[in-house]
Design a protein around this nucleic acid. Structure first.
Lengths: 226, 226
DNA sequence: AGCATTTCTGCACTGAGTATACTTTTACTC
DNA sequence: GAGTAAAAGTATACTCAGTGCAGAAATGCT
């Protein structure tokens, strides 16, 4: 606290070679999270109290809340990275590539690789987690908050890297996020209903192409010419 | 309205000549809601406990929860109608009109009439309510749930009245809802920041036109040709 | 008026999250 | 390597949202 100059140094050192304190924190964090996921998967999110999670992780309830601000965070913190994923994809795209193209290609790669975030993954573990989330309203609500965060981040990326005007960037962002989310949701629901990922792949890819074409070329006339 | 006599009659009778029990229920419902809004506006949503609302409404806490399933519902039940508003607009559109056109015209009318739902209303009461909602995360989260409901209803309306295929209907619905919501949000935030509605009207209308054009004709290339 | 049904109430409870005051652990300095 | 400040963890007790239950009151029907 004395030398204000060393403050930065301390943090850098902490990150490059984590001290005992830091390592312990990470272990505790993981222990709590693991205990929570295990219990939630076994008994259901609403059927397990945070007190029980704390007990299983051999930590006081107060400490648990020092690591995770809410019960929902015990689950969704694992998805935190994905909140800025679309923004990252747009920023890191090949020069000259259109942002929408970059996002489409990224999503298609996700499908091909059965990335859980694309919804097209039927590994039992992933499936159980998906079902658990879809079954708990508070977790679903929390996912919506994620969407909002993703929208904000993507809008900023569009403004900064494509020079898209403020309003257009916001509008494009909400549309892109909404569409991609709808695609993932659809896949996830199908997996939860027992459809195998490999059997669904072709359809999922076709749907994605269709969805992105709609984004690019617009809804046009929704009523078929009579 | 039409005369759907037999089965419907019972409900119609109940509504046309409400008995004492029914009238009392409505009065209690209103009393609780009014007390809640008044207290929330004065002290803030999070600063007022449901127990205090129940006390002000001269009702037991248990009864309060019989009328409103959650604390948030004390506020958002007033918006319940708007959840299906877009779906209604699509269903009730002039024959031959494109759904998207109907929605655009409806939104523009909302702006012109300073409909609170369009965000373009700076009446002190509306403004205070808006600020209160925007200031309480749990209420904002609840509004997101509304969006989800609106999406579902709109998708169904598109499928049923425009023959839009399942997936396209869902995708169109999420895009339309997301865009309209973004427009409303933007207006509401400007009002909350003190911008007068009349001064904002022209800009809001232009933004809406731009947004719906984007919806209709697509995002195309977001990067300006270099 | 008498009786069944609905509604309301009081009370005690669970469970999430917070405040406080305290102990332990870690990191750093001399 | 002992001393010490800061960080992390704990125990306890609290607030508040929401529920379960058993009984009291109001209402509608005959």
């Amino acid at each position: 606290m004395l030398s204000g100059e060393s403050t930065v140094t301390v943090e850098i050192v902490d990150e490059s070679k984590p001290g005992l304190r830091e390592r312990k924190k990470q272990r505790t964090h993981a222990a709590i999270s693991d205990a929570a996921i295990a219990l939630f998967l076994e008994h259901g999110f609403n059927q397990v109290s945070v007190a029980r999670v704390a007990e299983a992780a051999e930590v006081s309830k107060r400490t648990l809340f020092a690591y995770f601000p809410t019960k929902e965070d015990l689950v969704v913190h694992r998805l935190a990275d994905h909140e800025t994923e679309l923004a990252r994809v747009v920023r890191d795209r090949e020069p000259g590539t259109d942002p929408l193209t970059a996002v489409r290609e990224h999503f298609l790669v996700g499908l091909r690789e059965r990335d859980p975030i694309s919804g097209l993954n039927d590994h039992p573990q992933v499936l159980r987690l998906t079902r658990m989330i879809l079954d708990s309203p508070s977790l679903v609500a929390r996912m919506e908050a994620f969407k909002a965060g993703a929208e904000r981040a993507l809008a900023e990326a569009l403004r900064e890297t494509a020079g898209t005007p403020e309003l257009t960037a916001r509008l494009a962002a909400v549309q892109i996020v909404a569409v991609q989310w709808a695609l993932s949701q659809d896949n996830a629901h199908r997996m939860a209903d027992g459809e195998p990922a490999d059997a669904r792949y072709a359809g999922a890819a076709a749907d994605a192409e269709h969805a992105f074409a709609l984004l690019e070329r617009g809804l046009g006339r929704l009523t078929p010419p009579q």
